[in-house]
Write a protein that binds this DNA or RNA. Sequence first.
DNA 1: CGAATGACGCACT
DNA 2: CAGTGCGCCATTC
Length: 113
Amino acid sequence: MSLKNQQIERVVQVISKIPSGSVATYGQVAEMANLNGRARWVGRILSQLPVGTRLPWHRVISSSGRITNPNIEEQRNRLRQEGVTVREDRVSLKRFRWNPAHLPDGLPRSSEG
DNA sequence: CGAATGACGCACT
DNA sequence: CAGTGCGCCATTC
């Protein structure tokens, strides 16, 4: 197992822990996987996922609450299936963002709503 | 090594 | 909310 492989596994592990009906941002996942600032890499990892993967990749969205996945229809369908409200390509982070309680309380997300 | 690319993120206009 | 610019970093050519 190479180092990169372990990091990828970290990311996969984090994503697998996102509860149904909630979403997490790429940056959030990166931070949880000790890859602070590597949000891009998280996206790249997701793009490398096998087609039949069991990983809930659809619960990962951009920091602005938008679906940046090329398979927007697929992701939107999956999210709605879990009860997440999706408007076009946008999800309300205020309502659906996953907060595992390891994050500080004073996060600047008052602009949501 | 240099240039271009990408399922990102933040600041500015 | 839309558009643009810059920073970030692994991968690809």
